[in-house]
Amino acid sequence: MKLNNEEINRYSRHLTLPEVGMAGQLEIKESRVLMIGAGGLGSPLGMYLGAVGVGKIGLVDFDVVDHTNLHRQIAHTTADEGRPKVESLRDTILAGNPNIEVEIHNTRLERDNVLDLFSQYDIIADGSDNFETRYLINDAAFFSKKPLVSASIFRFQGQITIFSPETGGPCYRCLYSEPPPAALVPS
């Protein structure tokens, strides 16, 4: 794989950083990241991963853009209301960087599609919004031996970590063995 001249120019401030350089930029271009959630966390995550040149970004979400999303889900604009979030986020990412591939999965992540999806990517990013999906993602990432970069938010607090049992690190169940009672989870 090589960078074309437009890409060399685009990523030049990366290429001149010793920590990235040409080899690093090619690693970024060859990488495949699957994002679950195209909302509050997914918006900035997808926009930045795209801008820095991650070669393939997968987006999983089944929701559509709602008026109440706009004040924080910054990849979606007023004109996107009613559109599937994965389409809206894909368009925003590609407008920022047309050199990459964005594959959209306008579907709910389920037990019967998760392993097949994970097999097509190198890194999984969890920006989902419910416990069922978070435990599904954790278990599927473990069985797929893929690192899981996990972030969750509640009101004014956020939690971020990487689960990578495949390299000896903990998984989500090591951190929290069970979810809270359903009645305590804000809907």
Binding site: G39, G40, L41, G127, S128, R134, S152, Q159, P180
Partner: peptide
Amino acid sequence: IVPSVAGGR
């Protein structure tokens, strides 16, 4: 005290 939270939106 750190409770499990699941929000992403």
